[in-house]
Design a protein around this nucleic acid. Structure first.
Length: 483
RNA sequence: GGCCCCGUCGUCCAGCGGCCUAGGACGCCGGCCUUUCAAGCCGGUAACGCGGGUUCGAAUCCCGUCGGGGCUACCA
């Protein structure tokens, strides 16, 4: 049997890391079994769905490297893979359910439902639908419908009864039908609900494994019941542990922007995101934390998925991002970090600046975890120095500082060549003459030139900056000291 | 409230009856290196929620309890 799995985001927002993690697991599973990974768009919520969200979701999926074999954009044997294009099909299934007595029209108004729900809750009864319209005789119901009275279609749950299934992550599940109400499958507007559309698609697309968040575990019996009523084959379900925010609650908007796009824009690498997310609810084994996509595909095992929820830890993600940045070869680092610098600068680098950056880049690469830090660390090279006041106050308070700046300026002005090694020997000579330690002697120069006590290595920085600018900045700092 | 899920360091994961005086990773703390900051290296901190069983032996099995979470929509 060929594995066929899918991810079905709703275009009502950006791709959330929780959905992305589900997509990632489905993708790994499909690739491991050389199966088919499908991307479907669940846009039954017509009010909130937009083409812009759909595009951004697909972009995020591509950015993460989750390529799909069938689905939106790439096609396949099942049409557009967009639910809004299949309302006719869902209506057909619903009509057949009604004809078969598996579903029935419900004429209860939202106001009535609301009132009954409130009363039920007040009296301590289950708040679900009470089945009022279930007992309407078919002829009366049909007449009211054709007469134009708005009606939702509800699925008639077998009562009494229960639904059991084996979840690949959570083992044996059992749900008493007494806890499941007759849920709506088609709204009065004719638009199907998620339960119907998603399940019909899973049956029609011959999905073999449904891997999704644990938040839908309680809805699974509904989906199984629909599948069985359609005469379809029930897929294997695997409910993934939820992703939590630092507060231990389901990751959501309240935890800030948790979209994949936000992480991309904050300077994370897709390969780091991929690696980190695959660790949430799964482990590679052998105490190995960093691994490639290929290795993950090779090792992925649905049976090894953990049951407990995982907190999304941006500290660890950032660390991992740094690991991936440092693993880049030098050329790739320059190429991939450059956009962040240009974004910070608000302009493109000139060829000369690009050459300057290339010299310093290996030192920058050792020091950053996120792309924007490459800009912060080199801004002094491409625009005027901006003094960090805390750095200034800390370093420039000593009386020897003025002497250091003067002496450094003089020695550097007289220097024959202008390379890191020469600069270093000149400045170390200064240290001896002035009888100063490296910290006391070099930090004022660093702050004068880069504006901060934190910078790439000093001599290389001066080399790249050039003699003229270096001398000018030493003088400017001295002038600022003297007021 | 009802239904369901989960419970090993602060966090992620390993552990699936003896190899556990519980291992790895992030974080944190300290040290080395060092012109700063990083990186790197070395070391440290820190957990089996609790109570009963079962067993020669339990983090591992069972029950209870407590705690956390999810769902409970004509949203997905």
């Amino acid at each position: 049997m060929t594995v066929r799995v899918r991810i079905a985001p709703s275009p009502t927002g950006l791709l959330h890391v929780g959905n992305a993690r589900s997509g990632l697991f489905n993708w790994l599973f499909a690739r491991h079994h050389e199966g088919t990974f499908i991307v479907r768009i669940d846009d039954t919520d017509v009010e909130r769905s937009t083409p812009e969200f759909e595009r951004s979701i697909l972009d995020a999926l591509r950015w993460l490297g989750l390529d799909w074999d069938e689905g939106v954009g790439v096609g396949g044997p099942h049409g557009t893979y967009r639910q809004s294009d299949r309302f006719g099909r869902y209506g057909e299934v619903a009509d057949r359910f009604v004809a078969d007595g598996r579903a029935y029209p419900c004429f209860c108004t939202p106001a009535e439902l609301d009132e009954r729900r409130k009363r039920a809750q007040a009296e301590g009864r289950p708040p679900g639908y009470d089945g009022t319209c279930r007992t309407l005789d078919a002829d009366t119901a049909a007449t009211r419908r054709t007469g134009g009275e708005p009606a939702a279609i509800r699925f008639a749950i077998d009562r009494p009864g229960e639904t059991t299934f084996h979840d690949a992550v959570r083992d044996d599940m059992r749900f008493d039908h007494a806890t499941i109400d007759d849920f709506v499958i088609v709204r009065p507007s004719g638009v199907p609900t998620y339960h119907l559309a998603s399940t019909v698609d899973d049956v029609d697309y011959e999905i073999t494994h449904v891997m999704r968040g644990e938040d839908i575990l309680p809805s699974t019996p509904k989906h199984i019941l629909i599948t069985e009523a359609m005469g379809g084959t029930v897929p294997v379900y695997a409910h993934l542990p939820l992703l939590f925010g630092p507060d231990g609650k389901k990751l959501s908007k309240r935890h800030g922007d948790t979209s994949v796009a936000a992480y991309r824009d904050a300077g994370y690498l897709p390969e780091a995101m991929f690696n980190y997310m695959s660790l949430l609810g799964w482990s590679f084994g052998d105490d190995i934390t960093i691994f490639s996509r290929e290795q993950a595909i090779e090792r992925f095992d649905i049976g090894a998925i953990s049951k407990n929820p995982a907190v999304f830890d941006t500290d660890k993600l950032a660390w991992m991002n740094g690991e991936y940045i440092r693993a880049l070869d030098g050329e790739a680092f320059v190429r991939r970090s450059r956009p962040a610098i240009e974004a910070g600068l608000g302009r493109a680098l000139t060829d000369h600046e690009a050459d300057q950056y290339a010299v310093l880049a290996p030192h920058v690469q050792e020091r950053v975890k996120l792309w924007p830090e490459a800009f912060e660390m080199t801004a002094w090279l491409f625009s005027d120095v901006v003094y960090d006041e805390a750095s200034w106050d800390k370093v420039m308070a000593h009386e020897a500082v003025l002497t250091v700046l003067d002496e450094a300026g003089r020695r550097l002005a007289e220097l024959d060549g202008w390379d890191a090694a020469s600069i270093e020997s000149a400045l170390r000579g200064m240290l001896e003459t002035l009888e100063l330690g490296a910290r006391r002697g070099f930090q004022p120069i660093r702050v004068a030139v880069t504006g901060s006590t934190i910078s790439p290595p000093l001599f290389e920085s001066l080399e790249v900056l050039g003699r003229d600018v270096t001398l000018a900045r030493l003088e400017a700092a001295a002038a600022r000291l003297g007021h």
